[in-house]
Nucleic acid binder design. Sequence first.
RNA 1: CGGGGCGUGGCGCAGCCUGGCAGCGCGCCUGCUUUGGGAGCAGGAAGUCGGAGGUUCAAAUCCUCUCGCCCCGACCA
Length: 506
Amino acid sequence: MTKQTKTAIVPTRVEDYSKWYQQVIKAADLAESSPVRGCMVIKPWGYAIWENIMHAMDDMFKSTGVKNAYFPLFIPLSFLEKEAEHVEGFAKECAVVTHHRLEKGADGGLQPAGRLTEPLVVRPTSETIIGDSFSKWIGSYRDLPVLINQWANVVRWEMRTRLFLRTSEFLWQEGHTAHVSKEEALERTQMMLDIYAKHAEEYLAMPVIRGRKTASERFPGAVDTLCIESMMQDRKALQAGTSHFLGQNFSRASGIRFQSAKETEEYAWTTSWGASTRLIGGLIMTHGDDDGIILPPKIASSHVVLLPIIRKDEDRQKVMEYTQSLSRELKDIKYHNRMISVEIDDRDIGGARGWDWIKKGIPLRVEIGPRDIADNSVFVARRDKDHRNKESIKRNQFVGEITSILDEIQKILFDRALSFKKEHTIIIDDKKKFNDYFTPENQEKPEIHGGFALSFWCGSDECESKIKEDLKVTIRCIPFESDTGTGKCICCGKSASGRVVFAKAY
RNA sequence: CGGGGCGUGGCGCAGCCUGGCAGCGCGCCUGCUUUGGGAGCAGGAAGUCGGAGGUUCAAAUCCUCUCGCCCCGACCA
């Protein structure tokens, strides 16, 4: 033990939050940047999280009647032009395919050839191409509702990218539904938001605030955008899912018409809703500590790592056999909608081995040495507790209790995140206090500060954008569970009803 | 895209100002000794310094261009 740093991750969250974020992703082996600008490689330990997120969400969607399908990556340029606001919103960040062939150029390199008559846009979102299908699928009110989801990649050519939080290409699901009535579409919009909230809280252990976006933050082309917002440990807000009520905007644009029971021709009412790999970024920043990430058991890449401790060569066989049989026994246990996932790490690298798994955030580490075997027990460490805090448990007791131990970790992570959010969510009615709350003491190198402010807002674009300009603070949402009292707008002082959530955001 | 910073083995960095054999810590590989908390000793592999061009006897170092990353803005899931 020549050199021992205090923490496994350098710098710590307090020292430099955004560096910490990059380091922790590297240390946990989740992802890395790629040769392609703004695009990332998601490594197995990170991708497994996404698989678990997908699995859980997919089940939830399907339980409400949604079916999966798949639509093209490429969208004809003319499709995207159909909805005015939509074009406006996405045009600047679209990747465009203009050629379909490569030829040897004069300099020996390859160059594009075969110009397309109509350029193809790499989907930034699929309302228009899916709308085209819907227009063909739907003829009568008896065809409705259509409830479709696709798991896909999309591309948005972002200026500034960060692993998981904002990459040029990202993975997500996008749901698209069409309904006979406005009420039904509104109900679906709310239903899917509630699913996101439930998924975030029950699986990601990430407490969220449900609410509605202001007009300026709305999805381009939507009538109403609902969202869930969660608080990261630097107290900034992360939008973790959105659900849009599109009214008849897109059905008009795409010609999604049906004949009603009253024999009239009507435009369908549509919705769309999405959640992305950004959730993994949220997960990292909600639970991670200065020793690495902490994975909530329900979506953890793996639940438990077995660490055989072999002191003498003659112990090896006995220890490995005990480890293998314990692994088999654990893998046979069902934990929520999957089986317990077990890793065995028998590398002979001393204590560094345990630290590797701490950094990777695995919920349980189990050391198995001759002493444990003699005692028919295991030595268990939990990622939600201090790394020195380990406990000897009888083997059969551990096997019997592992699911409840995991559930307990899941709950502790949620409770911890919830009290953090509560601690940094405050009611502010005084303008100076509001300014101070969102102004760091050290302007050069801002410390972690602020949080969520619940304040009154008069509803004007002017006040919203002034606050954004002055403090880089935006209205994250108009929460559903808002106090309905009246007060004075935090910006202009005019009377306002209902508090909104102000915060700095990712 | 505007302002600033940075690209040197897998990771973190020094060297650059003042050109002269490419270094350090961690990691990795081999052997021995160790082993309940990021092991010790010995040996070893791995980088032509983001890329291209230029200046020079000589370039990681100076100049030009370019690509990428990070931070701050504008934009956004």
